Computed example of a mutant assay.
Amino acid sequence: MANQVTATLHISDLVLQASPVVQAVMLLLFLASLYSWYLIARLYLGFRKAQQQDEHFQKIFWSGAELSTLYNNAQLNSKRHGLEDIFYQGFGEFLKLKKRHAPLVQTIEGTERILRVGLSRDQSYMESGLSALASIGSVAPYIGLFGTVWGIMNAFIGLAAVEQVTLATVAPGIAEALVATAIGLFAAIPAVLSFNHFTAKSEAVYSDRALFSEEMVALLQRQSFSTTQDAE
C-alpha cells in the first residue's frame, strides 16, 4: 500500500493528473521561469560586455589620445555603446556649440545636458529586462498560490463523493495542488535575486559613467579656458 501511494505521488504523475486549470498555471509558471532565465543570461552578458567596453574606452581616453581622434573613431563605429557613445554625443555637441562661437558657459552647459541625455538613454538600453524580472518575481508566487487553492478546492469537492476518507485519497489531490506553489517559488526566487543583483550592477555602472562625464566636462572646460587665454 505504501509503495502504491509513493508511486501515485511522483511529481510527473501529479502534474499529469492535475486539473486543466492547475496544469495551465504550471505551464504558465514554467514558461515564466524559462523567460526569466533567458533575461538573466542576457543581462549578465550585457553588463559584462558594457563594463569591458567602458574600461577599454577609459584606458584609451586617459592615455593622452586626442579628443578629435576619439570622436572620429567613434563616428565610424555604428555599433558604439556605453562610454564611447556618451562621449561621442557630448563631444559632438561641444564642437557644434564651439563652431557657433557660443559663450564658454553656454557651451559647457549644453555639453552637460547632452551627456545626461546620453547617460539616461544608454542606461535604459542596458536595463531592458529588469522590469520583466521584477514582475515575474512579484507575481509568480501568487499565480502558484492560485493554482494551489484551485487544486485543493477540487480535491475537497472530489472527497465529498467518498464515503471513507483516508490519507491515500487526500494526499494526491493536495500534493498536486502544492506543486503549483513550488513551481511559482522556483520561478520567483531566481528572478528576485537576479533583479536585486543587476539593479546594484546598474547603479555601479551609472555612477562610473556619470563620474567620467563630469571629468570629461572638466577637461573640456580646462582646454577651452586655456585656448581662450592663449588667444588673448
Rank of each mutant, 00 (worst) to 15 (best):
L34T: 12
L185V: 09
S207I: 05
E215P: 00
T199Q: 13
L70N: 02
E163Y: 10
M216G: 06
S78I: 11
Q52G: 07
L219R: 12
V149E: 10
E55V: 08
S19L: 01
R116Q: 15
T107K: 05
S207G: 09
S19W: 03
S63L: 10
H10W: 07
S224H: 08
F91D: 00
Q23V: 10
S135I: 11
I108W: 05
E215K: 14
I11K: 03
T8N: 12
G137C: 06
G82E: 02
S226Y: 08
N196Q: 09
Q75L: 14
G82H: 01
I183M: 08
L70V: 05
T227N: 14
G173I: 02
S78Y: 01
E232L: 10
E127N: 11
Y88L: 09
V149I: 15
Q106E: 15
Y38Q: 08
A188C: 04
I114R: 02
L34R: 07
A200D: 09
S224D: 03
V165F: 09
D54L: 01
Q51Y: 08
K201F: 07
V179Q: 01
H81D: 01
I108A: 04
A161I: 11
G110V: 14
H81Q: 11
I114K: 00
D54Q: 07
M153R: 08
I136Y: 03
L119R: 02
E55H: 09
R42T: 07
I183S: 01
V149K: 10
H10E: 15
S33H: 04
V5Q: 15
L185W: 03
F47W: 02
P190G: 04
S33A: 12
S120F: 10
A161S: 15
G92R: 02
S68I: 10
S138A: 15
A177E: 03
V139T: 13
Y142I: 12
E84Y: 02
H10M: 13
G184T: 06
T228W: 06
L185H: 04
R121H: 09
V15N: 05
F57D: 01
T69K: 11
S224Y: 06
F156E: 08
K59Y: 06
A200Q: 09
R121V: 14
K99G: 13
K98G: 08
S68L: 13
S33G: 09
N196F: 02
K59T: 11
L159S: 08
E55F: 03
R121T: 12
S12D: 12
S226M: 13
S224M: 14
F156Y: 06
F195Q: 00
S131Y: 04
A50V: 05
L95E: 07
F57E: 01
